[in-house]
Computed example of a mutant assay.
Amino acid sequence: MKIVVCVKQVPDTTEIKINPETGTLIRDGVPAILNPDDAIALEQALQIKDENPGTAVTVVTMGPPQAQEMLEECMAMGADDAVLLSDRALGGSDTWATSNAIAAGIKKIGEYDIIFAGRQAIDGDTAQVGPQIAEKLGIPQVTYVKNFELQDQSAVVERSLEDGYEKLKVKLPCVLTAIKELNVPRYMSVRGILRAAKTEVKVWNAADIGVDVETVGLKASPTNVFKSFTPKPKGTGVKIEGDTPKEKAANLLIALKEKHII
């Protein structure tokens, strides 16, 4: 079995600050990490590999040269191969343009049975790239996957909904996007780190993957970020005092009447 996992290097959102004057992210000194949902997608691929000898897992990302460090981390976790799509022509791509590039990269990788991706990236929260890749490749997709099992040449998954879940059976090849309930990602191993150090990350540019440069990059992106800002903090709440629930309820009624709410 051959599995491709789409991953992304993102800034650690716990360290993110926004320039109040320009409305742009301050990236200086902010650590870059493997997108959490993508780590869950990779873990599911690695679990399949553990249970099915002969399975090969390839991770692919689009980004600047420094994203290679994140791919090496993925291989240290257990991935067999890694591909970095890096080219100035790809810079500034929105989700539509990004999915064009990644779909082209996956086509160059070749055969695949399952394509895993995280539900969304924490630096954008769009949850669009995974489904768009499926559309570009013309294969079925299931998003928000919380449980997974293989049955013959199909994947049986539970897709999370607001009020429960639905159980679906989808034929391979397919695209599946993972959520945190699916699993807990493993750590890098010493053996994996040593193997990753000896494995070369493939770096492909736009010409290598044969993508039309008119469909990638900033100029080809139909959407752009207008402004980023930090929401203004809300005012402090009001604490209702009272020794018993009955007293608190009575004091709440008094406060609401004073404000003419009731």
Rank of each mutant, 00 (worst) to 15 (best):
K136F: 01
A56F: 11
F116L: 08
T143C: 12
A56M: 11
E72R: 15
E149I: 09
T98R: 03
K108R: 14
L85S: 07
D50G: 04
G91C: 12
S93P: 04
N52C: 02
A76R: 07
G91P: 00
E162Y: 00
Q153M: 11
K146S: 14
I48M: 09
A41E: 11
T55R: 04
N52F: 01
A89K: 13
A39K: 00
G110N: 05
Y112E: 02
T55D: 02
Q44Y: 04
I40S: 02
I133L: 07
D152L: 08
S99D: 12
A117P: 00
I139A: 07
I133V: 14
K108Q: 10
V60D: 05
A121K: 05
I133E: 09
I40D: 03
Q68G: 08
M75R: 10
L46A: 05
D113N: 15
Q47R: 15
Q132D: 08
V157T: 02
K107W: 00
V60Q: 06
Q120A: 10
A134E: 10
A89I: 13
Y112N: 00
Q151F: 11
E69I: 05
L85A: 12
P131W: 10
Y112T: 06
E158L: 13
P64L: 08
A45V: 07
E162G: 09
S99Q: 04
V156I: 15
E111S: 15
I106H: 02
A97W: 03
I106W: 04
G54Q: 06
Q153S: 14
Q153P: 01
A39V: 03
I102L: 14
A155H: 11
A101M: 03
Q68M: 12
P53G: 10
Q120W: 04
A104W: 07
P131C: 04
D37H: 15
T126H: 08
V129G: 09
G63V: 09
A79I: 00
G118E: 06
A101V: 13
D125P: 09
G124D: 13
K49I: 08
L84E: 09
G110S: 06
A76L: 06
P64R: 07
L46H: 01
V57R: 00
W96C: 09
A89M: 14
E73F: 14
Y165G: 11
Q66F: 13
E149P: 01
N100S: 12
T143G: 10
C74V: 05
L46M: 07
L150E: 13
D87E: 13
D125G: 05
M62L: 12
A76I: 13
I40W: 07
I139D: 11
Q128F: 03
D50H: 12
D152M: 02
V142L: 00
W96I: 15
D125N: 12
A104D: 03
V157K: 10
L42W: 06
M75S: 15
Q151D: 14
L46Y: 00
V83Q: 01
D113I: 06
L42M: 00
D80C: 02
I139E: 10
V157C: 04
Q128N: 08
E72H: 11
R119V: 08
S86G: 10
G124V: 02
L150H: 06
A67H: 05
K49D: 08
D113W: 06
I102G: 05
D50E: 15
S154H: 15
L161M: 14
A41G: 09
G138I: 01
L90S: 02
L84C: 01
E135V: 08
Q132M: 13
T143I: 14
C74E: 15
I109N: 03
N100M: 15
A127C: 03
G63D: 07
I133A: 03
